[in-house]
């Protein structure tokens, strides 16, 4: 069982968290526009940090992934796909139906949306069973515990809570993979 990547989108359609495995171990956290206007030293420091890291990513990309898209562009496409499919499903069978997953010849995408329109997306290999429950648990046990604090208190910033979230997520994903 392989897990390729994990995305969280907030209700403003913004990607607030990306994690990719099995491609290259790195995380990208898009800085929201609100964070860059804050001129506290901490925010500035984290801004500078993220801009250098994104520059680094751009340099790494072409060689490591061939003609593939950057992490940011991937996230935008993933959002577009799940958004369209979700609307399609709702249109076809009513607003209380929900899109669960789709698969192609090479991967499977699992989707879970909370009542507050937070979207959790997980890309795995084709043989994986339904992971809606797993995404729900990530939401309840990890996001609500650690992530919520991060997104409300530190928009675009870095804090202990994020590390806790990452550690939790990593160990959680490892349990599914086995």
């Amino acid at each position: 069982m392989t897990i390729y990547s994990f995305y969280i989108f907030d209700r403003h359609c913004e990607c607030i968290y990306v994690k990719q495995w099995h491609q290259r171990d790195r995380t990208f956290r898009p800085t929201s526009s609100s964070a860059s206007t804050v001129d506290s030293p901490v925010a500035l420091a984290s801004d500078r940090h993220s801009s250098t890291s994104s520059k680094l990513q751009n340099e790494v990309h072409p060689s490591s992934r061939g003609g593939r898209l950057s992490v940011q562009d991937d996230a935008k496409l993933v959002f577009g796909v799940v958004f369209s499919l979700r609307n399609m499903v709702r249109k076809l069978s009513g607003p209380d139906d929900s899109f669960i997953s789709y698969r192609t010849g090479s991967y499977k995408l699992h989707y879970y949306e909370t009542a507050t329109n937070l979207k959790f997306v997980l890309l795995t290999d084709v043989k994986m069973n339904n992971l809606k429950v797993v995404l729900h648990q990530i939401y309840v046990n990890l996001y609500v515990e650690f992530g919520e604090f991060f997104s409300i208190e530190h928009p675009g910033g870095e804090g202990v809570a994020v590390e806790l979230f990452e550690m939790g997520l990593d160990s959680f994903i490892r349990t599914i993979q086995d």
């Binding site: 898209l69 069978s93 991967y107």
Partner: peptide, 28 residues
């Protein structure tokens, strides 16, 4: 049609052919 094209583009696996094959929802 558009989504189908994008699903083959966002594949995490290299040289993967084809887009969406099966879509599952609660009711269909």
């Amino acid at each position: 049609h558009g989504v189908h094209a994008i699903t083959s583009r966002i594949s995490p696996v290299r040289n993967s052919g084809g887009g969406l094959e099966v879509l599952e929802s609660d009711r269909f």
